[in-house]
């Protein structure tokens, strides 16, 4: 029920993001969603793609440092309070969110929240137990 996320190290300089995206485009890889964290010197590009193994090797061949991390995707109603409800569960379960991002593409009235926890497995079971819908890769990419 976890999703593999790719992280790519980028220097905070013009052109660096474009060359990474170009490499993926050249291999015909579509990016479902992404988040970019910035600091003064460097950034971390976090990507969710369907063919993550292929994307990883494409990025590595282009000279990048790539890391695969398991993240947890949950589905919530795309309406006021939808996210708050999930966060309440997370709070009560005592889970610490390292970072998160969200998207709504192709999901009608639903939104997807992507969370990075230290212990993804524990998070999945706690969220599921609390009735939050945790979605796996198949569902995510095939939009079932």
């Amino acid at each position: 029920m976890k999703i593999n996320q790719l992280s790519l190290f980028l220097e905070n300089k013009p052109g660096h993001l474009r060359s990474a995206c170009k490499a993926l485009a050249g291999a015909g890889i579509n990016i479902l969603t992404l988040s970019l964290a910035d600091t003064q010197q460097f950034g971390i590009l976090r990507l969710i793609v369907k063919e993550w193994q292929k994307a990883k090797s494409v990025l590595e061949e282009a000279g990048g440092v790539v890391k695969v991390t398991e993240v947890v995707a949950t589905e919530v109603a795309d309406k006021p309070g939808g996210m708050a409800q999930v966060l309440e569960v997370i709070d009560q379960a005592g889970l610490n969110i390292e970072y998160m991002y969200a998207f709504t593409f192709r999901r009608n009235d639903k939104a997807v929240l992507v969370f990075r926890f230290d212990d993804a497995d524990a998070a999945v079971s706690k969220l599921s137990a609390a009735g939050i819908k945790v979605i796996g890769s198949k569902e995510l990419f095939e939009g079932k």
Binding site: Q5, S7, F9, A37, T39, F42, I44, R46, V65, V66, K67, T69, E98, Y99, R116
Partner: peptide, 15 residues
């Protein structure tokens, strides 16, 4: 140079 061994997806890891 960042190596895969030390790269982290967390900002605080790299910091």
């Amino acid at each position: 140079e960042v190596t895969s061994e030390f790269f982290s997806d967390k900002i605080r890891g790299l910091e």
